[in-house]
Amino acid sequence: MSGAEIARQDRIRELARQALTEGKVDYFIGWKAGHVPSEVIPAFVRNVDECDMLLWNPLCHHNLTTFLKRKMPDPPDARIGVCVKGCDSRTLVALLQETLVDKERLYVVGVPCDGIIDRRRLEKAFSDEVIDIAFQGEQVVVTTRGGETKELAYEELLLEQCASCDFPNPRYYDDLAGELLPQPEGPPRFPGLEEYEALSAEEKDRVLADAFATCIRCFACIHVCPVCYCWDQCVNRSRRPALVGQKVAAKENLMFQMVHMFHVAGRCPSCGACDRSCPVEIPLYLLHRKMNKELFEMLGFQAGLNVEDKPVFQTFNIDDALGEQ
């Protein structure tokens, strides 16, 4: 791990300790090691002496702001400390824009981020179970259960979205863990869409139909999504009215995901949590990142940048270029 990353981790622990000692929060949400060192999971720390289990490294992929949305805090009025990366901070900003979380009950630690590892891609390079992933400078040392060890380049293992990240720094925080990173120049990037966009309408239909035929409707994608907060009132499960078919079939599955996509449009910053949570690896980014690209090109809008902004579907601008589309 680089010096900067160790410094961030130390600072996260220190800020968590402080917040708990001062009674600023009831619990603090960060990341910790799972059942094997290669697995990082959300950590809920209530006691000062547990703060040392908090960690920071390029495996901390969970967007922890999902634990702030309706029905997730326990007790419901808990005062919560939470760590956010750049992308996570944008979902938090989206929640704040809609006043769905109370700023007063929140303590936010912003963590500048160099990019998260694509664990799925990494695992596919091994037939054995990956149990340890260690970071040594620019190298990632991967160890399997059978004892095989391989060194891979960190740069090459980054999630596609991280390799062209526009916001490595959090957009909203109370305290910062580590130094801010240089802010990338230029217009926002929407990677990974070229191949899909080059297809004809029929081919696009087929790609989506094929992808969603494998959906098992576990709803991980919507539950893990911080800005998808209808909880029990989700239209995708509603029987009255029965707007979305309950059958698990390609067409119905796509319909369900379309509902999700349109519903989070304007609030989704493409953090990729849905994509990473899908147990059957449906490329959900195709829908969400594409939607965000459209929103930017049509309306110049990007989700979750400033708390004062209004989500795009809650505003009307006479200059919006809708007429030209």
Partner: peptide, 10 residues
């Protein structure tokens, strides 16, 4: 125990 459960059905 349920803190990190997101209540999906995976």
């Amino acid at each position: 125990l349920a803190m990190r459960c997101i209540s999906c059905g995976t």
